[in-house]
Amino acid sequence: MSERTLFVFVYLVLLGLLATTIGVSYLELGPWNPVLNLSIAAAKAFLIVWFFMHLNQSAGLVRLAAFAGLVWLALLFTLGLADWLTRPDGWMS
């Protein structure tokens, strides 16, 4: 497969994922709605980063630098949510 074909294919998959995420948002799945929608967003982000941002052709050091950004983001969310998700019910009132 030529690179051009690959990019067009990735683009079509991305559009398919977009259609899926809109479809999912119309279903009443309770707590699974955010889980599914965010998983689809993560899958789309991976495809863009891996193929369009050339991480698949990049050296290990470059991949590590890209991953480091994610690590800091994970720290922000883990430490932040460790507080907000563990508060007892009705703490505000």
């Binding site: 995420t21 999912v24 967003a41 789309k44 050339h54």
Partner: peptide
């Protein structure tokens, strides 16, 4: 051009997350 593209795709990725977080959930 590659560097320019990386910035462009990053802005795309931000929207890929903004869309479900704001509109869909």
């Amino acid at each position: 051009i590659e560097g320019l593209g990386m910035y462009w795709h990053f802005v795309d990725v931000v929207w890929v997350f903004l869309y479900p977080v704001l509109y869909l959930i």
